[in-house]
Write a protein that binds this DNA or RNA. Structure first.
Length: 551
RNA sequence: GGCCCGUUGGUCAAGAGGUUAAGACGCUGCCCUUUCACGGCGGAAUCAUGAGUUCAAUUCUCGUACGGGUCACCA
């Protein structure tokens, strides 16, 4: 039996040849240095920061060069598929302003060549066409080994401390089956996968240039890897080779956990006669746990999920800026110099990307986020907060937004609108939600942050007696000073600093006592304004409540 | 275990054969300030380790340690 006949037996339904697809998916008509990149999430219902990190790199590379950025759904693993995952992936990426030119669920421009379908399951025939061709050339063969047999091989290799663990050489039982023998098994109905007949030599290495890692020396692939699973769907490796070739990807950007499988991909491209794309393997996002760095894991780390940041109400821009700062080492400086320029102006480049694992720094994100929100208009932040609450805290909407005018004043206050400089109180929506709670009598239930000072109840009582809501800010503060003097606190900061021992404290301590009494917190914006917003009745009740608490 | 990658302050990092080894976050001191912030000016804190090359090494080479990744009909 010839290879030709054998291929026909294996793939009787495949009528096309590779040439058909080469023609169907021609070279893209793009400017000279245009890059074609892609993101290929698997629809497990979970898109994470690492994906976004890579996606931003790909998106920037493509769009800065006048190229194409597309979305391919890598759904070859049926077992892990989650319903609705594709929608969630797209919506998450959209939230963070990642836009595709083509790909799954993206409408393409009329008349343009389609490189789809972009769901790998829908491309089974394409892959099989190429496998059939490999069989004809004697470069692929069916493997009938069961899971148990494969495990046995692996165990044997482990026990014998063989260096290379896997299906290759003399361990590859099915590799030397004749076409006739294989045909027998197929006719008997045995399930089988298709494997690459590797041409690699053990011990050989080759130099490989990665756009991020630089030159890397790797061993030649010797494994007869599975290219088609028994259900006729390809493995990642094979799908990657065929798709990125046919979709005319110029640079493959993916996590550096893929670097060790580059030898497989190199051989696959070579065996298929494809020109290899450039590769860029991005650093991993890590997290510290028990004093050790480790790769962020989908299962264990909720902070890895993009949904997490959305739920917390981090502004997408903040997440993008943060990611850019870790994506390109020179971004931060550029951003500080050009805070008003759109991120797209930044000259992103792959070789400015870091090679080693990056520890995710939430504090830094918070700082960036605070800066970004403080630079926004009151209206924008108001809307943003409102929309977040509609989705994530709808039951609180009637409390916080019952009086839009009041909420507007609160926003102005906390953002420092109209002041010389903006405040940076707001970081994300959940934090705003908690921060602003004391403004609303219905939910005001403070955990008082009182420090121990002398005469606290006396000070509160005296303040209550003298408070007049019609006082302006300075009259109000003068009364605070008067109270300070009355109870042996310094009303003059300079005097206090010279002789701190002569006083029980200073006017800022007095202010703190009133602040905590009214709001429960030591840190709030201008107290006088808060009391104006709350109104006289509410303030009086709160002062009583605090006095009662202090006993 | 094999293979691959990495190691500059607590974190993100720039950097070059000779530098006072940038900057940012965090921490912290002072100033400003009628309270909270904002802001301004300072401070502490880093080249994993051994050997080699060199007049000179944190930078180049080799080893060691440590960290990470990967070795599936998962991606």
């Amino acid at each position: 039996m010839t290879n030709e006949q054998f291929a026909e037996l294996l793939f009787p339904d495949i009528k096309n040849t590779p040439d058909f697809y080469e023609e169907k998916y021609p070279q893209r008509d793009l400017p000279d240095k245009a890059e074609v990149t892609r993101i290929g999430p698997s629809p497990t219902g979970f898109i994470h920061l690492g994906n976004l990190y890579s996606a931003m790199a790909g998106e920037r590379l493509a769009h800065r060069s006048g190229g194409v950025f597309y979305l391919r759904i890598e759904d070859t693993d049926n077992k892990r598929k989650v319903d609705g995952a594709v929608e969630s992936v797209i919506s998450s990426l959209d939230y963070f302003n990642i836009r595709f030119d083509e790909g799954a669920e993206v409408d393409r421009q009329a008349g343009a060549v389609s490189y789809g379908p972009f769901y790998q399951r829908q491309r089974a025939e394409v892959y099989q066409t190429y496998v059939k061709d490999l069989v004809k050339k004697g470069l692929a063969y069916p493997c009938f080994c069961s899971e148990e047999e494969l495990n046995a091989i692996r165990n044997e290799q482990t026990e014998n401390k063989v260096d290379d663990i896997g299906y290759y050489g003399s361990y590859a039982k099915c590799r030397c089956l004749s076409c006739e023998e294989a045909a027998e098994k197929i006719k008997a109905g045995m399930p089988y996968s298709m494997r690459l007949r590797s041409q690699g030599q053990s011990g050989n290495t080759f130099k490989f240039r990665d756009e991020i890692m630089g030159e890397v020396s790797l061993p030649e692939n010797i494994m007869d890897v599975v290219i088609l699973k028994s259900d006729g769907i390809p493995t990642y490796h094979f799908a990657h080779a065929v798709d990125d070739h046919l979709m005319r990807t110029t640079t493959v950007i993916r996590g550096c956990e893929w670097l060790p499988s580059v030898p497989i991909h190199v051989e696959l491209f070579s065996v298929l006669g494809f020109r290899r794309p450039k590769y860029a393997h991005t650093a991993q996002l890590m997290k510290i746990e028990d004093g050790k760095k480790r790769k962020l894991s989908k299962r264990k780390d909720p902070e890895l999920s993009l949904g997490y940041y959305r739920e917390l109400g981090y502004h997408p821009e903040a997440v993008r800026v943060y990611l850019m700062t870790i994506l390109n080492s020179n971004f931060e400086e550029w951003y500080q110099k050009n805070p008003e320029l759109p991120l797209e102006e930044f000259k992103f480049s792959l070789n400015k990307m870091g090679v080693s694992g990056i520890l995710f720094d939430l504090q830094k994100l918070d700082d960036i986020s605070g800066n970004i929100i403080s630079a926004k208009d009151r209206e924008e932040v108001y809307d943003y907060f409102y929309k977040w609450m509609e989705v994530y805290k709808p039951e609180s909407l009637p409390v916080y937004f019952a009086d839009p005018e009041k909420m507007g004043r609160i926003m102005d206050l906390c953002m420092g609108v109209g002041q010389k400089r903006r405040r940076k109180d707001f970081i994300n929506c959940i934090q705003m939600f908690e921060l602003l709670g004391y403004f609303f009598d219905d939910i005001f239930n403070p955990e008082y942050e009182f420090e121990k000072y002398e005469n606290m109840t006396d000070i509160i009582a005296e303040f209550k007696n003298t408070y007049d809501s019609s006082d302006d800010s300075s009259a109000w503060f003068n009364k605070l000073k008067a109270i300070a003097d009355k109870f042996g606190y310094a009303s003059d900061m300079k005097a206090y600093k010279q002789n701190p021992d002569q006083y029980k404290g200073n006017v800022s301590h007095v202010a703190e006592i009133i602040r905590v009494a009214v709001t429960g917190r030591k840190n709030t914006p201008d107290l006088w304004t808060i009391m104006q917003i709350l109104g006289n009745d509410s303030c009086m009740k709160r002062l009583d409540k605090a006095a009662e608490y202090l006993g």
